[in-house]
């Protein structure tokens, strides 16, 4: 065998390895989906979605958990999006390069790596106890906001960074102020990227369980929350609760709830992809 044949074998070897790696992830996802769907799909009906929780598996539903999740998500977006976007704009556009902004940058990167349960403990103490918000939706939303802020800040910065310098120069050259340039040129051009980041951050928030358990989200909430100060539960906690029950019926319920949760996440990711592709078409520089 000469060296060219050996190189060809090496090439083929690596290619096969890469393909196997790619499919490994897909196979795991497929197995997961299969197991969950085969167990839970038949359980999903309108009653399941609109029923309150119950001690009997067959009549229990996810109504309160679904509403709790929507409440939490809407509040989280209202709190985290403006703050995260403004922080991203500041760091990218206004912040001078010095030790202070470097310090902030490093710490935002660090925050993104803090385990979510730590945020839960922080939220419990700061929002729940010190600010006296208790185990309310507001506490949950504030805690999740802290959790996804770094993601929003980083994605806002990346989106702003991707706006070509030539567009800023065109705006400044016409006598626009910094804010006029940012609001008329930079943000509209970066909008798709910022929204994509936001939606991915929401997907992250949907999947979080640990911090909400720590701040005291209830497992059994027999009513639909009506305001931000109400107690709440969310889908992930409902699932967690059901899988810990011994009765087989609850396991089926959990599978069904997982399907709903997955649908939510897939939908969010789908919207993110859609926005990105639409925006890419609109603003090709």
């Amino acid at each position: 065998m000469n060296s060219s044949q050996i190189n060809k074998i090496k090439n083929l070897g690596f290619k096969s390895f890469a393909i196997v790696c790619t499919f490994l992830g897909l196979v795991v996802l497929a197995v997961l989906l299969y197991v969950v769907f085969s167990q839970g799909l038949s359980r999903i009906d309108w009653d399941f979605i609109t029923s309150l929780p119950s001690r009997r598996a067959s009549s229990a539903g996810i109504y309160t958990a679904l509403f709790g999740m929507v409440w939490i998500l809407v509040l989280t977006v209202i709190i985290a999006f403006p703050i995260g976007m403004a922080a991203g704009i500041y760091l990218q556009e206004y912040g001078k390069k010095n030790w202070f902004t470097n310090f902030i940058e490093v710490n935002i990167a660090n925050l993104a790596g803090v385990p979510s349960i730590i945020y839960g403990i922080l939220g419990l103490e700061l929002f729940g106890r010190v600010l006296g918000l208790g185990n309310s939706i507001l506490t949950g939303a504030l805690t999740l906001s802290l959790l996804i802020l770094p993601i929003i800040i980083v994605s806002t910065r990346e989106a702003i960074k991707a706006v070509p310098k030539s567009l800023r120069e065109a705006s400044y050259g016409l006598g626009a102020t910094k804010w006029q340039t940012i609001s008329n040129v930079v943000l509209p051009s970066a909008f798709g990227g910022i929204m994509t980041g936001l939606i991915l951050a929401i997907s992250r928030a949907i999947g979080e369980t640990a911090p909400l358990i720590v701040i005291g989200a209830l497992v059994y909430v027999p009513f639909v929350p009506e305001g931000p100060m109400d107690e709440f539960t969310v889908l992930t906690i409902q699932i967690f609760n059901w899988v810990t029950r011994p009765q087989a019926g609850f396991v089926t319920n959990a599978a069904a709830a997982i399907i709903i949760l997955l649908m939510f996440t897939f939908m969010m990711n789908g919207i993110a992809v859609l926005i990105r592709s639409r925006y890419n078409k609109k603003t090709k520089f």
Binding site: S166, E169, A170, S171, Y172, G173, L174, P188
Partner: peptide, 16 residues
């Protein structure tokens, strides 16, 4: 000041 001076750049840079 910049409003009184127009500038045209090397690469066409219309806004989107």
């Amino acid at each position: 000041h910049r409003k009184k001076i127009g500038m045209v750049f090397q690469k066409p840079n219309p806004f989107p």
